[in-house]
Amino acid sequence: MTSVLGGGHFRHSWNIDGFDLHRLGDCSCLGIILKICHAKSPGWKRKSKHITSSRRWKSLRLLALRRDKFQCVKCGAVGRLEVDHIKPVRDAPELAFDLSNLQSLCARCHGAKTRLEVGLPPPNPDRLAWREAVNQLMSK
């Protein structure tokens, strides 16, 4: 990863699986995964876009966040949360607006779930152990 400061923005660049990925500022891991999906399968499309851009979704999203007490159901993180379809819209479109099919996830947990759903390999266990060790040191 390289970081460059230019034009008032902090820029990150990654090379994952031979794909050069860039992002400005702070965006979720999901955005990076989506770029990989588009690069590997040019015809790949997010099936839930029409769902998540509706007014009905915004109300349902808030209900899911309230139900989950505004924390990630996997790791308990608070802050920036994403509401995820447990069964993806592409597999179960009839459950798109079903509150029981929604869960609040932090960007990290949502990215890990999406990564597995789209067929990318799970993260290296050594990397996960290192991340956990760093998190424990930072919490002291």
Rank of each mutant, 00 (worst) to 15 (best):
D17C: 11
A107D: 15
L24A: 02
V89R: 00
G111T: 05
N15Y: 04
G31P: 10
I51R: 02
K47E: 08
S59C: 12
G31V: 12
P88T: 04
H110S: 02
D26N: 12
V73A: 13
V89I: 02
D68A: 08
I16R: 03
L95W: 01
S104Y: 10
L34N: 06
H9S: 07
R11K: 11
A96H: 02
H12S: 13
G31C: 13
K49P: 05
K74Q: 14
W14K: 05
L128W: 07
G8H: 00
L60F: 08
G79Y: 02
F10V: 15
N124P: 04
S3I: 14
P88Q: 03
L95P: 00
K87H: 09
W57I: 02
D26H: 14
H9K: 05
C37A: 09
H38A: 13
N101T: 02
V83Y: 04
L102A: 14
A77Y: 10
I33M: 01
L5D: 11
S54N: 15
C106K: 05
R108C: 11
I36L: 03
D17L: 12
E82G: 05
W57P: 01
H50W: 02
H22W: 11
A133F: 13
D26Q: 11
E94T: 01
D84N: 07
S100M: 12
S100C: 09
L30D: 06
H12A: 15
C29T: 13
S100A: 13
G18L: 07
A96I: 05
